[in-house]
Simulated assay, not measured.
Amino acid sequence: MTILITGARGKVGRAVIDRLHSAGLPVRAASARPAELTVPAGVETAELVLDRPETFAAALRGVRQVFLYPQPAGIHDLIEAAEAAGVEHVVLLSSSSVLAPDAESDPLASHSLKVERALADSGLTCTFLRPDAFASNSLGWAWPVGRSMPVQLAYPDAQIAPIHPEDIADIAALALTGDSLTGRALTLTGSESLSFREQLAVLSQTLGRAIPVEHITRAEAEEQMGRHMPAPMVSSLLDLWEAADHGPAALGETTETLLGVPARTYRQWARENADAFTAR
């Protein structure tokens, strides 16, 4: 029973591969550029390009479970190929944003929502993992923090419950190896609500130096963020943070509730990634 991991170049995908391989399970890592993958010895690799259905059959041969990153392009063809190959279960790395009232029109949420709906309409058994904000999103502050510059935020007191990517991998591995999560849609978070300001205070303590926080206007944030991402995505993120600026974030399922293992903290993530916040 081979387990296919898509998005094998991503941090969560790689961590899931490591867990399954360490457990002695047959794993195949899929990528549009499989030659560039770094996988443990004994892990198969396969080419899988979502807009090239001719790559599907070989990647899915002998596969019974799939860990899937959400990509709407080619999803219906991929589902058809998976059903034909005998795939029994898909674990989708979705997003909590699909629960928003405007998810269909939101550029962030609609990406995952389209994949969820396509899978829900299929004959496949599916598990939807819907993580909230990743702790690793803080890497977006690495450039100013590493240069002792202030971190400029339009909503510094917006609260999220950041989840450690390794926690997501632990939950995904459980979903792929047991049946306790099969067929469920799970909103995943860390175990504590933290504002951006509080996250930066944790980073400051970890690094042993001050990190100034500068409150800027939404218009200024739109201009800055617009240099790196499309305007609709900027608006979506800022709307999300504005809505989160009015109290603690709701907590969802964690490794504690699902696995009986304490969730990794944001402080732990900060310690593990402190080097990323040092200028090179």
Rank of each mutant, 00 (worst) to 15 (best):
I163N: 00
G74D: 09
A185G: 07
H215N: 14
R117Q: 11
A109H: 04
A46F: 10
V49L: 14
L92P: 01
L119V: 05
A85H: 05
E47H: 10
L50H: 15
E44D: 14
L93E: 03
R9Y: 09
L200R: 13
A57P: 09
E256Y: 05
G10F: 02
I216Q: 14
F67C: 02
A8Y: 13
V115C: 04
P144I: 12
A173E: 08
W269A: 04
A221H: 13
T187Y: 01
A29N: 10
A41R: 08
A276H: 09
D157W: 08
G146F: 06
D102F: 01
R130M: 05
I160W: 00
L186S: 07
R64Y: 00
P70C: 11
E116S: 03
Y155K: 02
A154H: 08
M233T: 08
A85I: 04
R130Y: 03
L124P: 00
R130F: 01
L60G: 09
V66N: 06
M229N: 14
S236T: 03
R52Y: 04
L25W: 01
A58G: 05
R218D: 12
A8S: 14
L194K: 02
S96F: 00
A270L: 11
S94M: 01
T189K: 02
L68W: 04
A185F: 00
L20H: 02
Q71L: 06
G62V: 08
T255I: 03
T217A: 12
A57Q: 12
V63F: 02
E47G: 10
R117M: 01
V151Y: 15
D239C: 05
A120I: 09
S31H: 10
V16L: 01
N137G: 08
I163Q: 01
A201H: 10
A100C: 02
L153S: 14
R267E: 15
W141K: 00
L176H: 01
A154F: 08
S235G: 12
T265P: 05
A35P: 00
A118G: 09
I216L: 15
S110E: 05
A85D: 07
A142W: 09
V98K: 00
L25R: 10
A276T: 09
E166Q: 11
V39K: 13
R267A: 15
S204I: 07
L37C: 10
T45V: 12
R227G: 13
Q152K: 15
Q268T: 09
S236R: 01
S96K: 00
P262V: 01
V91T: 06
R14P: 01
A29H: 10
P230Y: 15
T187Q: 08
T254N: 10
M233G: 04
H76M: 05
I160Q: 07
T6A: 13
M233Q: 12
D106S: 12
A73Q: 10
A82H: 02
E198A: 13
